[in-house]
Simulated scan of single mutants.
Amino acid sequence: MSSASRSLNCHASGSHFKAGLAARAGAVILVHRPNIAGTAPERGAEVDLIAAKGWPKAGTAVVRFEPEYHRMVDLPNG
């Protein structure tokens, strides 16, 4: 089997993804929930969106997750 037709199953933070998919993608955004394990209660419903590939610079945006509306919204500055 060629490496192009083979992909590895990876496990990260309880979710599965195909490692080859990130290599072939034009853009990759990682979603990190710091309080998922209950270790950062001050971060509550916050989510970090991490631009990992496809942008001139890597960066992180912190947003609030509103599960009742199935959306993420900007946090107020300051």
Rank of each mutant, 00 (worst) to 15 (best):
S13F: 15
L8W: 06
I36W: 09
V31I: 09
T60K: 15
G38L: 10
R43C: 14
S7F: 01
S15I: 08
T39V: 14
N77S: 09
K53G: 12
A45L: 04
H70D: 08
F65M: 12
R6K: 11
H11R: 06
G14A: 10
S7V: 02
E42I: 02
Y69L: 11
R71I: 05
V62F: 02
V62I: 11
S15K: 12
L75K: 06
S15Q: 13
I36G: 04
A27P: 04
A51K: 03
K57Y: 09
M1A: 14
G59H: 07
E68M: 07
S5P: 01
H32K: 11
G78Q: 11
N9R: 00
S13R: 14
E46A: 00
G44E: 10
A58Y: 03
K57E: 14
P34E: 02
A40V: 10
E68C: 05
V28N: 03
V63R: 08
P56G: 08
S5C: 12
H16R: 06
L30I: 06
H70Y: 05
R64F: 00
I50D: 09
H70L: 08
S2D: 12
R6I: 05
P67N: 07
G38T: 09
K18I: 05
G14L: 08
A27F: 10
K18M: 07
H32R: 13
R43Y: 14
R24L: 13
H16Q: 07
R33H: 14
R24A: 15
A23L: 01
P67K: 02
V47G: 03
G38H: 10
S15H: 08
G78A: 12
Y69Q: 12
G44Q: 07
I29M: 07
R71P: 01
I29A: 05
L21D: 13
Y69H: 07
A12W: 13
S2F: 04
G14W: 07
R6V: 04
A45T: 04
P56I: 03
A37V: 14
W55G: 03
E66P: 00
A23P: 00
A37D: 15
A58W: 03
R6E: 05
V63G: 00
P56C: 08
V63T: 05
E46S: 05
S5N: 12
S15C: 13
A4G: 08
P67G: 03
A4K: 02
G20D: 10
R71D: 02
R24D: 07
A52W: 08
A58D: 13
A22I: 13
A40T: 07
A45N: 13
A58S: 15
F17C: 12
N9Q: 06
M1I: 04
S5L: 15
A58K: 12
A45S: 13
